[in-house]
């Protein structure tokens, strides 16, 4: 009787957001259990760890995409920005006039400077998004699809539609390939974990983080409550582009190459994990933590599919079906809750 009462009082207190996150954790547990039963050798320590670490780049992208999705906006340009910053960081670093081959010649800047400049360009793409969306009020999907093309297009111009991977200084490959001492966990994974934690703190504990939810919940009321909606959206777009830029730098370093068609479709993956994690564009809720859970769900499903020896071509179909099921399941769960 007493416990009944307690849970009765506790339940309405839980916000829809935590409810959905918990719901998706439940879904994750079920999917994981099924995968362990069905897929041979699925439950191995290495495998389980891989599930979390293999998708570090999507999770970093997911942070910015999640924030924007909470405010009701899309960012489809992140994949293009990855390609652009990767290519730029390579180009800036490559030795100047070292070869007959145009693609081997770069600007010969020091690595740190090259990275800084590349990130600046990434933020520039974010600023274009911000201008069109926050100032001209153009639908975000149209503009970010355009800047996706723009960023990737510039990367293609610099690499002549292919890639740059020669005459790079040694320190270029350092951050992308180095592992934490004594483990085989890459620095990139550490960066991802740190960024997710920072994002979580930002989202839940800071004033700016709170304002993301306010804008998503009611943009007019936010304006009348003194939130500078346009400026806030603009900084979120630049943040999202910066995160994509960091991912681009890390990936370029890992492969020691700037590839112009790197990260095609990543923007969709980032959107999918956000949706799987319960972020809703309809109204200001969702969280980075949910997005993280969504990312794990997606990788459990895809690695289970690989474990079942399905061809990699299955991934698009699986992602599509899983996303629809997630959207419908979440809606059903929320409806039942009322």
């Amino acid at each position: 009787m007493r416990t009944n009462q307690a849970s009765g009082a506790a339940l309405p207190q839980m916000s829809n957001e935590s409810f959905l996150t918990l719901f998706m954790v439940g879904v994750l547990a079920v999917i994981f259990a099924i995968a362990c039963l069905v897929v041979p050798n699925f439950f191995q320590a290495r495998n389980v760890l891989n599930i979390v670490t293999n998708n570090w780049f999507i999770i970093i992208l997911g942070i910015g995409v999640t924030f924007l999705l909470i405010t009701g906006n899309f960012d489809m340009s992140v994949g293009g920005v990855i390609a652009l910053t990767g290519v730029l960081s390579v180009w800036f670093c490559q030795g100047a006039n070292v070869s007959q081959n145009v693609l081997a010649n770069g600007l010969g800047l020091p690595y740190i400077l090259a990275v800084g400049l590349a990130l600046l360009c990434a933020v520039g793409i974010g600023a274009i998004n911000a201008f069109f969306i926050a100032r001209l009020k153009v639908p975000s999907i149209i503009i970010t699809l355009g800047t996706m093309m723009l960023a990737r297009g510039i990367a293609q111009i610099i690499t002549h539609g292919a890639q740059r991977n020669t005459s790079l200084p040694d320190e270029f490959g350092l951050v992308g390939t180095a592992a934490l001492p004594g483990t085989n966990i890459k620095i990139s994974v550490l960066v991802m974990v740190v960024l997710v934690l920072l994002a979580f703190v930002f989202e839940k504990m800071t004033v700016s983080g709170r304002r993301i939810y306010l804008i998503g919940a009611n943009s007019e009321a936010s304006r009348l409550s003194g939130v500078k909606v346009g400026r806030h959206l603009a900084s979120l777009y630049m943040l999202s582009a910066l995160l994509a830029g960091i991912t681009g730098i890390l990936l370029a370093s890992e492969y020691k190459a700037g590839v112009s068609n790197r990260a095609t479709g990543y923007e969709f993956d980032a959107l999918v994990i956000a949706l799987l994690g319960g972020v809703s564009i309809a109204g200001g809720f969702g969280s980075v933590l949910g997005m993280f859970v969504g990312a794990i769900i997606l990788s459990v499903v895809t690695s289970a599919a690989t474990g079942l020896l399905l061809s990699p071509d299955w991934q698009f179909t699986i992602k599509g079906v899983v996303t629809f099921l997630a959207i419908l399941a979440q809606r059903f769960a929320l409806d039942r809750r009322k």
Partner: peptide, 15 residues
């Protein structure tokens, strides 16, 4: 390989 940028520019101009 200039095509993508050209198209993106047309899109931005169109917008």
């Amino acid at each position: 390989y200039w095509q993508t940028v050209a198209k993106a520019s047309v899109l931005l101009i169109a917008v």
